[in-house]
């Protein structure tokens, strides 16, 4: 079996080429480049799903039921990723309210992150963990600000366009999350004999999807565009940061009741097909998000009040 990373590397290369072409060539490519990545994802999806159903080996313990893995696990990974994009977009929307501050923030987070990582290398025990935690957090903030700075510089991103990205990512995440929950229930019935097991991961996912549905409805109920942007951005950031603590709480709640866990040892063939399907979901999600981003921007442009007519001389 070849490495499962090859289809992903090809797709990411295609993504870079398409974005570069859209930037340089203009014209039709500029408005439709995401269909290229979408078609690639769709092809990968058909190949991966067919192989998952008919080519991949049967699961030893669960039999053919185990094949749901090739949809369930990618949906879980990529919905989480879409919510991460939503967080990045909303955080970016807040940062881009003052884009002139970005170089300063880049310096601060970069220096802080390097310091934290250096401290983590030098220290031991609990201080090491703390330094590594905050170091990694600052490095991530640095990378986010770098992307924002480059996007602002070369693609003209502002607070509004980052918010449109968050909007379409949230919607994609909710769709994938609902798919994940539905498949989780379908999966649980033959394996555990009940539709819902209150398994910590599934329960935390359900709460996560509910949280983002709330955020999405908030967007639908606020009419002023500027107010909506800042409120939804803040609500998305809070909803995302709340995920780990929800997961921890639900996990503790369940471990008190001794739930069985499934061993995650997979045959290498199965790993390959799982990776193919995960890449397929990723590129499809990128397609949805990019398309939704464009639609959200177009909707906002249509909502905006028309420019004032040029001043005329008042008739005497």
């Amino acid at each position: 079996m070849p490495s499962g990373y090859i289809p992903g590397a090809l797709g990411l290369a295609l993504f870079v080429v398409l974005v570069a072409a859209a930037k340089l060539a203009g014209g039709k490519v500029r408005d439709n480049w995401e269909h290229g990545i979408g078609l690639y994802g769709l092809g990968l999806f058909l190949w991966g799903q067919y192989s998952g159903l008919f080519v991949a080996p049967r699961e030893a313990m669960m039999g053919d039921v185990g094949r749901i893995l090739y949809v369930h696990v990618p949906a879980a990974w990529i919905s989480m990723m879409a919510f991460t994009w939503a967080f990045a977009g909303s955080f970016g929307s807040l940062m881009l309210q003052a884009p002139q501050q970005l170089p300063k923030i880049l310096g601060a987070t970069g220096a802080g992150g390097a310091l934290g990582i250096a401290a983590a290398v030098a220290l031991d025990g609990t201080p090491r963990k703390l330094a590594a935690f905050f170091g990694v957090l600052l490095v991530l903030a640095f990378l986010e600000c770098l992307v924002l700075y480059l996007g602002h510089r070369f693609f003209g991103w502002d607070a509004d366009s980052a918010d449109h990205f968050a909007e379409s990512s949230t919607e994609t995440g909710i769709v994938l999350g609902l798919l994940l929950l539905f498949l989780g229930a379908v999966f649980a019935k033959p394996t555990w004999g009940t539709y819902w097991t209150w398994d910590p991961r599934l329960t935390a996912s359900a709460i996560m999807v509910l949280t983002f549905v709330g955020v999405s409805l908030l967007r639908a109920t606020v009419s002023d565009p500027d107010t909506r942007r800042s409120w939804v951005s803040v609500a998305t950031v809070i909803a995302y940061i709340n995920i780990p603590i929800t997961y921890m709480a639900v996990k503790w709640w369940r471990t008190m009741h001794q739930l069985q866990s499934t061993p995650n040892t997979l045959d290498s063939d199965m790993t390959f097909w799982l990776r193919v399907n995960a890449w397929a979901f990723l590129f499809l999600a990128m397609w949805f998000v990019a398309r939704g981003w464009r639609i959200a921007a177009a909707r906002a442009a249509a909502e905006a009040p028309p420019p004032l007519p040029p001043a005329r001389e008042v008739a005497r």
């Binding site: 709460i207 949280t211 908030l218 109920t221 929800t246 921890m248 709480a249």
Partner: peptide, 28 residues
């Protein structure tokens, strides 16, 4: 969240929708 929802349309539905999933760890 009450500040957000007092200004939103359908505010009496929005506050529980936004707040309840968020406070699950606290309630639990």
């Amino acid at each position: 969240y009450a500040l957000l929802t007092t200004r939103a349309r359908a505010s009496s539905v929005m506050l529980p929708l936004l707040m309840f999933p968020l406070v699950v760890p606290a309630l639990l």
